[in-house]
Design a protein around this nucleic acid. Structure first.
Lengths: 123, 123, 123, 123
DNA sequence: GTGGTCTAGACCACC
DNA sequence: GTGGTCTAGACCACA
C-alpha cells in the first residue's frame, strides 16, 4: 500500500475498504484485519488506522464485536454504492462537465479517451 | 462569491481567474481588481488574495506594474488552457473513469447527464 | 439474548441475573446454569460468563458449591434491591432530572409516558 | 472543568457544548475557543479537544472557517435539542421506567424526589 | 488477543 | 494565529 501525498492517509484507508467492498473482495460479516495488524501491514500508526475504522463504523459499513474485532456490515455494499453514486452525480460530474465545456471537449470525444484508458489498465 | 471549505480559498480564487480568462471575460492587458478591493468584495483576508496573485504571476497568467496594479498577460489564455488540459487528461480523467467503472456507469450514459447539466445551467 | 455494544457483556449478564432475582424468577438456593451452558446459550466466551459469576459472588448474590455449581444466596433479593435502589437514587435520578429540566419536560408529563410504556410492554 | 472518570473526556467536552448551547450561553455564529486555548483551559491534550470539535462538526452543531476558528451553527440549538430528546425518549426513559417498576417506585413518588432535587440544586 | 482513549510533541497548510 | 494530520508510546477494559 502506497499513499498519495495530497489526501490524508486515514481517508485513503477508508477508500481502500470502500473499493474492496464494491469489488466484493470483502463480503458481509467478513472479519477485517485488526487495527494493529493493518497498521503494521501498511506501515502506519495504529491511531491512523483506528481513525479509518471509526469513520467506517459511523458510515455503517463495518461493525464491532467487543474484543473480537471489526466486521463488514450486512448492507455495506449498498451503503457504499449509494454514497459514492451521490457524490459522483452531485459534485464530481458537474465539475467535470464544467471543465470539459471550458476546454472545448465534447462528450463524444470521451469514448476515445475511455477506450485508451481501458487499454492502459489491462496492461 | 462563496467558497467551499474543503479547498484552500486562495486556490479557489486562482481558479476563479482561470475560468474567467478561458471564458474571455478577462482579456490580455485587462486590469484586474486591486488586492484590497477584491479582499473586500470576497470578504476575505488581503493576504489570501495576495497569495492568489503571487501564484498567478508565477504561472505567467498576470503581470504587475508597480503602483498601477495587476494585468492579464498576453499569452494568458493559452497558458491556462494548456495547463488545465494537462491536469484534466492526466489526473481527472483516469480517476473519473475509475469511479464510473466501479459504479457501473457507461460512457454512453454520460450524454444524458450532459444534456441535463446543460439544461440546469441555462436556468 | 442480544447484547448492546456500549456496555461490557459481563455487566449485562450480571444485570440479567439481578433482574431475574428481583422478578423472583430465581429464588434462594435455585441452581443457576453452569458457566459452560450459559456461554453456549448466550453465544459468548466462557471467560465472560465466569467474570459475571465472580462479580455476583462478590456481591453475595450467588454462592458456589464445589463440583455442584452456583446457587442463589439466601438474602439475594434484598442485597440486589438495596444496591439498585441506592444507585437509582444517587446517580440515575439526578441525571434524569437534569436532562428533563434542560429539555423542558415536567414531572407531570411523565405519567403520560409511563402509561404509554406500560401499554407497549404488555404487547 | 473536572471530568468524570467513567466517560471519555472528549464526549464530556462535546456534552459541555451541548449544554451551553441549550442554555443559550452560546448562540449562533459565536466563536468558540480555539483548540489550543481550550486545551490549556481544560488541562487536556489538544488532540482530545480536536476530537470533540470534529464530532460537533459532524453533528452540524459548529462550523469551521479556515484559519479563523470554529463557530456555532445557525440551527445548533434545534439540532441538539432534537437529538437529546430522541435519546431521552427512546433509551433513557424506558430503562428508567423498567428500573422504577422493578424497585416498586411509582410515578407519583417522583414528585417528592423532584422537589428535593430542585431544592438541593438551588443550594 | 481485541478496540478505545489519552498524552506529548511534531509538522503542515492556511488566514 | 487557526485547524488538521500523523507518530510514538502508553494505559485501560474487555473477550
Amino acid at each position: 500500500m502506497d499513499f498519495k501525498n495530497n489526501q490524508s492517509i486515514y481517508l485513503q484507508i477508508t477508500h481502500y475498504f470502500h473499493q474492496g467492498i464494491l469489488k466484493e473482495e470483502w463480503k458481509a460479516n467478513d472479519k477485517i484485519p485488526s487495527v494493529r495488524a493493518l497498521a503494521v501491514d501498511f506501515e502506519v500508526n495504529p491511531n491512523t488506522v483506528m481513525r479509518s475504522y471509526t469513520k467506517l463504523q459511523e458510515q455503517g459499513v463495518i461493525y464491532n464485536k467487543r474484543g473480537l474485532g471489526n466486521f463488514i456490515s450486512e448492507g455495506a455494499k449498498q451503503v457504499v454504492a449509494k454514497q459514492m453514486r451521490e457524490d459522483f452525480l452531485q459534485s464530481d460530474l458537474p465539475e467535470f462537465f464544467q471543465t470539459m465545456s471550458v476546454l472545448g471537449i465534447e462528450v463524444k470525444d470521451l469514448e476515445v479517451y475511455y477506450s485508451q484508458w481501458k487499454g492502459e489498465k489491462e496492461v
